[in-house]
Write a protein that binds this DNA or RNA. Sequence first.
DNA 1: TACTAATCGAGACGGTACGTCTGGTCTTGTC
DNA 2: GACAAGACCAGACGTACCGTCTCGATTAGTA
Lengths: 199, 199, 199, 199
Amino acid sequence: MTDPGKARRPGRPRSERSQRAVLTAALELLTDQGLQALTMDDIAAHAGVSKNTIYRWWPNKAAVLMDAFADAISPRMGFPDEGDAITRLRAQVRRVAQLMSEPRARLPFVALVAASQHDAELATALRERFVADRRAAAHQLIAAAVEAGEFAPDLDIEVIIDAIYGALYYRLLVSRAPVTPDYADRLVDGLAPALLATA
Amino acid sequence: MTDPGKARRPGRPRSERSQRAVLTAALELLTDQGLQALTMDDIAAHAGVSKNTIYRWWPNKAAVLMDAFADAISPRMGFPDEGDAITRLRAQVRRVAQLMSEPRARLPFVALVAASQHDAELATALRERFVADRRAAAHQLIAAAVEAGEFAPDLDIEVIIDAIYGALYYRLLVSRAPVTPDYADRLVDGLAPALLATA
Amino acid sequence: MTDPGKARRPGRPRSERSQRAVLTAALELLTDQGLQALTMDDIAAHAGVSKNTIYRWWPNKAAVLMDAFADAISPRMGFPDEGDAITRLRAQVRRVAQLMSEPRARLPFVALVAASQHDAELATALRERFVADRRAAAHQLIAAAVEAGEFAPDLDIEVIIDAIYGALYYRLLVSRAPVTPDYADRLVDGLAPALLATA
Amino acid sequence: MTDPGKARRPGRPRSERSQRAVLTAALELLTDQGLQALTMDDIAAHAGVSKNTIYRWWPNKAAVLMDAFADAISPRMGFPDEGDAITRLRAQVRRVAQLMSEPRARLPFVALVAASQHDAELATALRERFVADRRAAAHQLIAAAVEAGEFAPDLDIEVIIDAIYGALYYRLLVSRAPVTPDYADRLVDGLAPALLATA
DNA sequence: TACTAATCGAGACGGTACGTCTGGTCTTGTC
DNA sequence: GACAAGACCAGACGTACCGTCTCGATTAGTA
């Protein structure tokens, strides 16, 4: 595990094992018992780790959730770039919807959004680390399509992105309706007339 | 809700003054110090009321917020019914946006949505008491417009409502962008091509 | 207590029934569930009386107990005055022991003594209304016997009374040993050599 | 009580400082403001300790007082064993009287006896930890004196002990008369004729 | 037969302490 | 020096009891 050639600092090295155990335990508790059971003591006990260790690597509970969420979504990044604009947009939205339908990603994310309502710093971090990326990708895709004449030239891009992502968040946080890839298709198709350039 | 002709049971009547004081204090603290400062002790002290009295009438903090919110929005119900469908829809959305831009309504609502993420009972109550009404009103308006041939016959109404309200909630909870009546107009106008029947 | 000859005010007269119910309920709760269950709310509910009524006639919980105790001992006052001094003393002590072995008298008394430890006013009232009488009676009996040459002339009367009554209270409050008339006999007989004049 | 050679379990050791602070604060508040002012919050604040810490080591307020009392009397244990039986008994009683005349011991003890009247567990603990010791010591002393022919052979030892200690408790709890070493002498001397073997 | 005034049951109220819980920090001894 | 264990502080939580207060409904005596 340790590189035998490098000059090892004295002292016990940081345990990757502990950190994985923390994130795993956090997700497990979140999935099994819900947001209520998510106390730091429980996470520590469940992970076989001391609270000290948690606070050594994360400043607070929200930060743990942040990593748990990053962890859950990390493998699923990147968008396909084939097909026409609508197809590529649909693929993007499907991907987000897919994520929101998996408990391992949905639950920490929901917890983060909830916590961010009374934690400005967290809100900023959440926006910068997760939300902004999607918005930027969507914006780029749409702007390019407008440029190419595929989408309407006077499109209010901000409104469109708000509407698409908003619909997903709305179902996630408020109406608690399922957010499936199928729904993603319905969503993009339903809004398509507002996107496409009229001949 | 209560039968005005009902047989009053004996005993000292519930003090309207206390209850008003509680709701007022809750809103005031929420507005001034934010969601963090909103402790039951503070509300009680600020309202000149004992904690006992609060817990006599509300089961928990969320319930107080629920009423505080109901209180803040109660006078602004009812939609105009003049003009074409788009105009009436725009009026509806403007009204909600207006509410979301007023701290007295926005703050308790945001707090409620956050709390409802780890309180299933509260989530249900919130949906049933506040969200369902708007959805129903919007649904009725849109369905009628479809019926009348004003809106596209194959409209996916659920998607449209998700998109419109979702955009508002998204800005409220996630992007923290302002939700003004002007934005409501942009939103409805931006989605209008997806609504209107093509000639 | 009220002067029957005074000009009676109009209005509903005091209900003897309620007051009896209060004392009965207090004693009953005390006997059945112990000192813990003795809340004013419980007494009121159990007596079918409003708390208001209790507080109209008694200033606080201790006062209720005071009357409950007075009630329980009232019929058993007065000492016999036959036989020699030891016999009469034994009769006195038996009577007190008898009282302490009956729950109806013991329990309110124990409660009063306990409460009087953090209520100076109550402590004074308790001493003046109940304790002083016995002491005075015992003092008189013993002093007369000393005078008559029956008891030792250099008797420390205060010490003797402390010892006799102290033994009873000690068993009542601390060792929780039974305080029966038989024990009263053992007590007086055991101390008799300290009382009697040596020939 | 604890095995000094035992395998210490890991973790931060119990803070002796905190515990001393709690007991000191409890005694101080008790002495200064009386039994009423003795709230757990006050003790915690006064001791610079969190309530949590108090409840970690003591189950309730009575238990704190129990230790506070043990603390106040701990240095004064053990009886002298010189002189004749009456002298040694007098020394014992003087010692207890001495304790009862010092606020630091008297006040927590009085509070404990009061509380034990509605707390069976506490009553047992109080008897077993404090009362039984004195009784046993006194019993042993008296029984030995009987055996040695110094005290009367038919002595009712239980009665004698009840009378001696009862007198002290009676003055402490009921008559509130001072319990001084001088009084202890008067007491033992007054009862001496009941103890000594008649020639 | 009204009128008057004190009583009553019911129960809401302010105040205050309780004992519990959680988040985040600090202190040991061990690896 | 990282770690497990767990003690620690701060402070909010929801509950319990006390003694006070308002209601509307009785219940005498008075007019």
